[in-house]
């Protein structure tokens, strides 16, 4: 049996925060919910753990004692030490002393927090706080681990460590749901749900999402200044100016999406990657054509 949301609608005041969103969270796998600010990622996860009540749809989750959750605010006690935070989480979930010490030692060793046992939660760096929070959520070996933007504002090394923890949990049989605003992290998931303004733009495995990219993607390397078409450099001025929203910059190059498969003049065909897929899903949504 898998956990997750099926066709869930959540209203926050007058705003429809989630509109028919489905987030399957399979056992032994990572589901990544990707979206920008205000896309509804946190609401999704809050509905999954029972913090917000859906207006309609189905939520499947294990009982509370078998869920691990890290809110976007981290959820560790800033005025308790690392060791005291661990002790509280263990007591809350009824993890016995021996088991607690064994699991805590493993998690602390993996996260490098074993050197910071006596430091207050509030004195840890942002990355260490996130690692502690994920470690605490894993302490009772939950069936479902729900992490709200665990890597936001974290340095690349700590981010890699966090993902090692998350992947390790999934490999150990835990169903994991992770929200992130970093598109490149979506490819780490077994399943990905793209959200925008509370609606699903795309859903499936990263490969499925890539395969489903409509039209063609092109690249205009090294074009300086504004949109190539508008500047009249690489692509015909008329073509690009008519569709300025379909251009975006990545590094030094411009990328372009042609829904009809006909790339503008000067654009080299490119194999879409996951970043492109997300951008194209958003552009297609903006244009009014869902996916």
């Amino acid at each position: 049996m898998s956990w997750g949301l099926a066709d869930v609608r959540v209203r926050r005041g007058r705003v429809l925060a989630l509109d028919g969103v489905t987030v399957p969270v399979g056992r032994s796998g990572v589901t990544v919910v990707v979206g920008g600010d205000g896309a509804g990622k946190s609401t999704c996860l809050q509905a999954l753990v029972g913090l917000v009540e859906p207006e309609s749809g189905t939520v499947r989750r294990p009982p509370k004692e078998r869920v691990g959750y890290v809110p976007a605010t981290c959820g560790i006690y800033p005025d308790l030490t690392v060791a005291e935070n661990i002790e509280f989480a263990a007591l809350a979930y009824g993890v016995g002393r021996g088991e607690r010490d064994r699991r805590a030692a493993r998690i602390l060793g993996r996260t490098g927090l074993d050197q910071a046992l006596r430091r207050l939660g509030g004195q840890l760096s942002g990355g260490m706080q996130r690692k502690l929070a994920v470690g605490l959520a894993l302490l009772h070996s939950p069936e479902l681990l729900v992490l709200d933007e665990p890597t936001t504002g974290v340095d690349p090394v700590s981010r890699a460590e966090l993902w090692r923890l998350i992947s390790g949990a999934a490999a150990g049989g835990t169903a994991v749901a992770v929200a992130t605003a970093y598109v490149n992290e979506a490819a780490r998931g077994e399943r990905v749900v793209l959200l925008e303004s509370g609606r699903m733009l795309a859903s499936g495995s990263p490969e499925e999402i890539l395969r489903a990219v409509p039209g063609a993607v092109g690249v205009v390397p090294g074009a300086a200044g504004g949109v190539p078409g508008a500047a009249g450099t690489a692509a015909g001025a008329g073509t690009a100016a008519a569709r300025p929203a379909r251009w975006w910059r990545r590094g030094p190059a411009w990328r372009v999406w042609a829904p009809d498969g006909e790339l503008p003049e000067g654009a080299e065909p490119a194999e879409p990657d996951f970043d492109d897929a997300v951008m194209i899903a958003a552009l297609a949504h903006e244009a009014g054509g869902a996916r």
Binding site: M1, V8, G50, E53, E55, S56, G57, R60, P63
Partner: peptide
């Protein structure tokens, strides 16, 4: 602590499944 508690029953369209 539990925003949905007590009102969930009133919303027939929403279903929360928590197997024991």
């Amino acid at each position: 602590l539990a925003p949905g508690a007590g009102r969930a029953k009133a919303r027939a369209a929403a279903r929360e499944v928590t197997p024991a």
